[in-house]
Design a protein around this nucleic acid. Sequence first.
DNA 1: CCATGTGAAGGTATTCACAGCC
DNA 2: GGCTGTGAATACCTTCACATGG
Lengths: 213, 213
Amino acid sequence: MRYHRIPDETVRRLPVYLRGLMVSADQGHEHISSQSLADFVGVDAWQIRKDLSYFGDFGTPGVGYNIEKLARGIKKTLRLDVIRRAALVGVGDLGSALLAYPGFRLYGLDIVAAFDIDPTKVGEAVNGIEIESAAKIDTLKRREITLAIVAVPRAAAQATVDQLVAAGVRGILNFAPSKVIAPKRVKVITLDIAMELARLPYYIPRAEQAAET
Amino acid sequence: MRYHRIPDETVRRLPVYLRGLMVSADQGHEHISSQSLADFVGVDAWQIRKDLSYFGDFGTPGVGYNIEKLARGIKKTLRLDVIRRAALVGVGDLGSALLAYPGFRLYGLDIVAAFDIDPTKVGEAVNGIEIESAAKIDTLKRREITLAIVAVPRAAAQATVDQLVAAGVRGILNFAPSKVIAPKRVKVITLDIAMELARLPYYIPRAEQAAET
DNA sequence: CCATGTGAAGGTATTCACAGCC
DNA sequence: GGCTGTGAATACCTTCACATGG
């Protein structure tokens, strides 16, 4: 099945598998079966096998998967086999937390630049990265930074995205709670944290909303 | 179609519509057509109409939707018609940013308690909320707090969830990068920020990864 | 004998096209 | 004429069951 297009839902799950594999490797394992990985990451075993079948044969029947080899295969498929440089725009509370967040490294992602519009912040360093004026966003192309994280207020989001697009950025993770428009060649993922919390109550049955004293 | 089960994907989109409606109301509008709302939030018009058809007739043919009425309907469906009290566990960089984040209010969600295991943080106040010892999580039931946000390191996530479940919490938004197990009656949504950034490169064609000098 | 990889079946969500109502 | 609400058609994803290979 190696020549099919990979479903979006599979692309969404691949980083989960990757994380599971790395944790498992840290624990000293060399091989893992689809069933063990399934138990570990919380997905069904056949789902994992189906997902992997879209882009290659990694397993050995009777044995399982070589962790190292499978991790490399997933990274290559996700195009994470190269270290990716990313820029952050908006060094507020959330932006600062993202700069300090160590989790990106696991996927070979590296935040190497930070921008803010506030002159009092420019020049300051957060987590070893000096904050630059937002006017300097146009230097990203020269610096070969192709990913960006937008953590600015809603009102500034579209203008920021426009700047980033003009600077040649190809992928944007947007935390501002609003739709932003970008050309088709630029992939935008919008993540509204409040919205995720907002859909939680739906799954709580009415009768049990109050504390069951 | 009022008596069907609402698809999960629809539940995921409803908060988007709700946000769009509120912004539109702020701009002084009273009515809105599915087409205008579609342009505004970035979803197709027929998708909006289909989604809304799962739980009620809100529109008037030839006119559109009364914004106020539709917003109330969506809130009721999402069970957001009551102010919801939430607790935060883990007041690190991300946790502090979440405490300061004003976006939850829009959905009637209110963070009213914060816990951390670090004794030097306990007693401090962040954004008007006093940080309590994590050992006090068991008081949540008494305080009728049914939602929780977990922003602790991966290693502590499962133990934190166990504590929250024991304290009667019914919905958990988990930022720790790991699967957590909870009884079926407790809904858990895991949000791994690094993973969202990690699937961005997949959508950037190989030939265009480097800056196009 | 055990675990993978995959056609085929089944289920869910998206998209279309239009009847019905203001 | 304009816009909603929805059956029907389509596309997509999940789940199953098993043939295949170590």
